[in-house]
Design a protein around this nucleic acid. Structure first.
Lengths: 339, 339
DNA sequence: ATGAAAGCGCTAACAT
DNA sequence: ATGTTAGCGCTTTCAT
């Protein structure tokens, strides 16, 4: 025996055929207790570890789900992945990851690697690759895209309702008495457009169309701060700001402080995503929480439905976000109509 | 042809043998330009994608490195992994990840999955499993452990010098004129013991043995805040605090603020790790930076040395951390000897 | 209850 | 330059 032990090595040591070894190893009930013991002991003594490739090659199943993470820095997907993996394990699947490292090219290679390994389904978490690449991959295995909408027969999506979340932010501020509510958007970032639309619609719904004011951002701290600078440079100061994500909200917070404005006394502030940043004690940001783990569980479920042939038509799942009230929102200072 | 196309399908379509197809696909120079074109075109038309399992089964090489991430929430390892993957790709290897989701049991299963897939080496990033599990895995493939010291013939380690980093923090504070420098440690967390030792030794080296004071923490924000509460409850107030990581430093910051103390005017504060938290504009924490990407590159390099048979003895690589000065440190208020 | 034989998709000698 | 043959380690009929 050279290299890793195989079932043939076990068979020799136990004095049985390799077929029997295979049966025992897969827990077949049609084997005598004696052989079972013999085989198991031989396997243990040899330190046997099944060769997943050989096994999958013949069984034509890998029982592996592939997940591509566009950016490991984004902890949003850590919990999503926990959900995916949890559900997958329940169903007897393993989850293998490949990282895109913020580059569409590397992400595409990650997809390729997983496909060559014959993973039975693919979850793309916040993919940066073009839709055509996703559609191409979906011709081979079912694909679920998280946090981005992609249309395709073999592509399912899991999203949270960004527009609803944005509306919840506005509703909360309005219920506190705010009217001049500005928005710092997320530019071309994932979900940014829907959040902006949600803000605009909610403002109109509250009869605050005239108070609408929004500045461009890009989900970064710097952009959040710069947007506040512009917001304060001209026009009436807003009494509340809704930023498209937590990081830009922190940038806004920093800028507001720099301008000598207190949060929430002078200006209320709402973020989006309920990241670890938002939950820092000295920040305690009011924000919108996405059901990350549930999104992961749903993604795995969609994949399993396809793999097990329970569904063939595309499905788009939209989960509801929820408001998390921190200490960055309060009633506006100058109570009553000040305009 | 059913299922995914194979080289036999290509061979039929191109009217050649499957060996020729294999040669072309692997870029052999011993094929005529005509056949090459024929094969490549047939492959493209069929949407052929090599079966990595079949290929690896016979070649006995996977060209895959496995990386186990104990916790995807910890972005520390995102950059480490970027380094690993970058170096691996240079050398013609792919990197596959499996997540431990903060559980030793799940981490152990992740190791198992990668081993069954016959990855040629394993990187364990901040592993939570017992050393015995790591040693066991290392009997099959070379293992590199990042951010934890593990002894074993087939186990290499990549660490950054936590003691040196801690000393740099103390040196920085002493050079500003501080003497009463307290430490909030990280309990049983990774690197915490070395950081504490580094603090203690540096204090002694500066002749400040009498000023040594440290409180227990556990790398969390809450523990950092609680430690400050205890620090301020009795004894003379320290003029500077060195926390074992950024998160507990933020907890300390929050507590100091709550006690009406300004940072750095009343108390200077130093963290450790230079996480994204530390680099928030309104935080701008003085901290110790670990060369994450370099650590990843080194980890991959160690693995490659083993895989390619260039080395057989265990190696422990210790990289140097560096001080990042933010705005949370300044000379102490009551200048001159106040004790 | 166990064994023999075939073959998964591919590479790697060894022919020619 | 191309084809033939023999497996890689395993599961899966099909016998017995």
């Amino acid at each position: 025996m050279m290299g890793q032990p195989t079932i043939i090595d076990i068979a020799e040591r136990a004095g049985v055929s390799k077929s029997l070894v295979s049966l025992v190893l897969r827990g077949s009930p049609r084997v005598s207790e004696a052989s079972r013991r013999l085989v198991l002991q031989a396997a243990a003594e040899l330190g046997y570890r099944p060769n997943a490739m050989a096994r999958s090659l013949v069984s034509r199943r890998t029982h592996v789900l592939g997940a591509v993470l566009s950016d490991l820095h984004n902890t949003f997907f850590a919990e999503v992945l926990d959900g995916i993996d949890g559900r997958a394990r329940q169903a007897g699947y393993r989850t293998l990851l490949a990282a895109g490292h913020r580059s569409a090219a590397r992400e595409s290679e990650a997809i390729e690697a997983l496909l060559e390994l014959r993973t039975e389904g693919l979850v793309l978490a916040g993919p940066k690759v073009r839709s055509s690449r996703i559609l191409e991959a979906s011709r081979t295995v079912p694909v679920v895209v998280v946090s981005r909408a992609v249309r395709g027969d073999n592509v399912d999506c899991v999203l949270s309702a960004d527009g609803v979340g944005a509306a919840a932010a506005v509703d909360h501020l309005v219920s506190l008495g705010h009217r001049r509510i500005a928005h710092i958007d997320g530019g071309t970032g994932a979900g940014a457009a829907a959040r902006l639309r949600g803000y605009l619609r909610a403002m109109e719904r509250h009869g605050l169309k005239a108070e609408i004011r929004w500045e461009r951002g890009d989900f970064t701290e710097e952009a959040g701060a710069a947007a506040v600078d512009r917001l304060l440079a001209r026009g009436r100061r807003p009494t509340a700001i809704f930023a498209a994500n937590d990081l830009s909200a922190l940038g806004a917070l920093e800028a507001l402080t720099r301008h000598g404005l207190a949060v929430p006394d002078d200006v209320s502030l709402v973020g989006y995503d309920n990241t670890a940043l938002a939950r820092l004690a000295h920040v305690n940001l009011t924000t919108i929480d996405q059901p990350r783990r549930e999104m992961g569980i749903a993604a795995a479920e969609l994949l399993l439905e396809r793999i097990e042939g329970r569904r063939t038509s595309a499905k788009k799942l939209v989960l509801a976000p929820s408001l998390v009230v921190g200490r960055t929102t309060a009633p506006p200072h100058g109570r009553g109509r000040s305009d």
